[in-house]
Simulated scan of single mutants.
Amino acid sequence: MSKRSKIILIIIAIGFIAALIWFGKKNKKSIVEYETEKPFRTTIVKKTVATGKVTPLEEIEIKPQIAGIIDRILLLEGAKVKKGDLIATVRVVPNEQSLISAKGTVDNIRIRLSNAEISYKRNKNLFEKGVISRAEYEAVELTYNQAKQDLKNAQNNYQIIKKGSTGSSASANTNIIAQMSGTILEIPVKEGDQVIQSNNFNAGTTIASIADMSKMIFEGKVDESEVGKLVSGSNIDVSIGAIEGIKFPAKLNFIAPKGTEEGGAVQFTIKADLSLDDKYFIRAGYSANADIILEKKDSVLSIKEALLKFDKKTEEPYVEVKNAEGKFDKKTVKLGTSDGVNVEILEGVTKDDEIKIWNKASKDDVKKVN
């Protein structure tokens, strides 16, 4: 055998040995062993969160009965008041043209009354002497009495234009008083501001808003996909943004029969009576969230949602269950209520099945088989 042939044989032998070593190492690669979990029984609570705010149950706006200018403001925002307390006073600024016209009417009627009084006294003397009949005398007397009443009405009208009211009602119209007991939330006017009275054509200027801060409600909105599961009278928990770590109990008492579209989604207004804690002062308008239980199931067979897979064709949920040989079989499952972490299993697996934990194949999970 030539030297060249020996070299070729040696090269072939070395290649063969290297191939054997490579295949041997490949066959010795570790087998991935997946961890498993068994189904368990737990309580599943499905919740939704409604965003909103805390508002007083009773809140009113105080408006003036006359137009004028704010003369004095006696109280500040945040002050506690009782029904009937004086909040502010209004000074009437009469219309000059109307005032002159009313004054002219008073003067004209006063002249007419003076003439009627003279006629009345003359005819009274004639009647007492028997010169004229009773009917003639009573007609003159009626004219005189009507003139007196016309003067009184004209004077009242003049006082109303000048002062905003007449007689004992003068202070009632110019004084702005609290119509309920509570806390003054807002006084949107200041001294010197002009105000308009409330009437059929104008809502009027708000001088103050008052609310009973001892009775507060949560007002929020929920999506149309969840409103059908709400039950009036159910208990909810309200978290207030300004008070961390505290949940206030509330009772749902109103679900709007009509929704409003916001950002392409239909939202329904809900309201709940809030139970307050004397340790905390709740201000009107605090932002708040309400945790509302939509569905609750106690001690149901469940698994973690992370164990689920979905078939690409049928989109049915399934899990892989370990068999006696250590391999995993695909099993379709029927799901019930879910809370986002755990999901109820209605059919497909039992409490003794070992279910594959997905995405656990890491270097730490690999064990070499010798």
Rank of each mutant, 00 (worst) to 15 (best):
N157M: 05
N108G: 12
G336L: 06
P188V: 08
G68Y: 05
A116R: 05
I21A: 11
R4W: 10
Q149E: 13
S198F: 10
E96C: 00
K356C: 03
V49I: 14
N289T: 15
K124V: 04
V366C: 09
I118K: 13
E191C: 01
I355S: 03
T206F: 01
V300H: 08
K327F: 10
K363F: 13
V319M: 06
A361N: 15
V349Y: 01
T314S: 15
S198Q: 12
R110H: 06
P64K: 01
Y280I: 03
S181D: 11
I292M: 08
Y318V: 07
L335K: 08
V349C: 02
N370H: 10
I44L: 14
G263P: 03
I109G: 04
D71S: 15
K367Y: 11
Q194N: 07
G182L: 08
I187D: 09
N202I: 01
Y318H: 03
E262R: 04
I355T: 04
K28N: 12
I10W: 08
S169I: 00
T260Y: 02
D212F: 03
R134T: 06
E128T: 14
N123G: 09
K304P: 07
F127S: 11
G220S: 09
T42Q: 07
G104P: 00
K124R: 13
V32H: 09
T337Q: 01
N153S: 07
L252F: 03
S169N: 15
E35T: 14
M213L: 15
K351V: 14
V222F: 07
I210C: 02
E325I: 01
T48E: 05
K367R: 12
N145E: 13
F248S: 04
Y137R: 08
A67V: 04
Q197A: 15
R134S: 12
A242Y: 04
E35G: 14
T206S: 12
T43K: 09
N370F: 12
A242I: 06
Q194C: 00
T42N: 06
V131H: 08
S2G: 14
K271Q: 10
I293W: 09
D150C: 01
K121S: 13
A211I: 14
I118V: 10
A18K: 00
I62M: 08
K163N: 14
I255Q: 04
R122P: 00
L276C: 01
G182M: 12
M180K: 13
I62A: 06
K356F: 02
S299F: 12
K38C: 07
